[in-house]
């Protein structure tokens, strides 16, 4: 691959993926825990909302985000922050778009955790932070990691949302998937093919690692 623009685009894409994944971890784990263990009014609405990106056309999600983050949107009006067509906008779009994937995996892993383990750990003198550190995370990390990798891979391949919110500004908001589209439009099939192959390899490696992690998780579950 000898197009320097491609490597720049790939770098930006990976940056979006890394930052989105970190935000997803920080936001998704507490949210998944709350959805599994707490009861509150409007829980079903929240659950449906976070799953919505699974069925919604990405362009629709992107369109609303554009309205929300754009020049005349509420963010600009009240907070004087304008994130459309910027890196931050891409991250927010990616987070919302990949949230259902991460959240579903986190929820599964928390549901599989026996509540008695947490209760008993507390009676053995452990504070809540220690229970998280020494019981919940050691038992749940394969599920958390696999959900996170899946969300990362999903972010890597998104197209519609980033196009709407980011607008494909080269070097600023153009990600690999859009780069490929642009190359095809320009009839540069050789470049499109090379870029596609690189994305394919990265995605396959990520999904493969998720499958390996799932196998690691299973014998643990059977243990108690």
């Amino acid at each position: 691959m000898n197009d320097p623009i491609f490597w720049q685009t790939l770098k930006l894409t990976l940056e979006v993926c890394v930052v989105s994944t970190i935000v997803l971890l920080l936001f998704g784990i507490p949210l998944a825990w709350i959805l599994v263990h707490k009861r509150f009014w409007g829980k079903r609405v929240v659950e449906s909302l976070v799953l919505l990106p699974l069925t919604l056309p990405p362009t629709v999600l992107g369109f609303y985000l554009l309205l929300f983050l754009g020049q005349n949107g509420p963010m600009a009006k009240y907070l004087h922050i304008e994130w459309a067509f910027r890196f931050e906008g891409l991250v927010i779009g990616s987070v919302l778009f990949s949230l259902p994937f991460a959240l579903t995996a986190y929820r599964e892993t928390f549901l599989a955790l026996e509540p008695d383990l947490i209760a008993t750990a507390r009676t053995l003198g452990a504070s809540l932070p220690r229970v998280w550190r020494e019981v919940i995370l050691p038992l749940c990390w394969p599920g958390i990691l696999s959900g996170t990798i899946l969300a990362f891979a999903h972010t890597l391949g998104e197209f519609g949302v980033v196009l709407m919110v980011g607008g494909s500004i080269p070097g600023k908001t153009r990600v690999v998937s859009i780069y490929i589209y642009d190359q095809v439009q320009a009839l540069r099939f050789d470049r499109a093919a090379q870029a596609s192959a690189i994305l394919l390899i990265i995605s396959f490696a990520l999904v493969y690692s998720v499958r390996s992690l799932e196998d690691r998780l299973k014998p643990r579950k059977g243990a108690t």
Binding site: E114, D116, L117, A119, T120, A121, A223
Partner: peptide
């Protein structure tokens, strides 16, 4: 406290 399942950390 011993729950019915004993709740040993696996």
């Amino acid at each position: 406290y011993l729950p019915q399942s004993f709740a040993l950390f696996p």
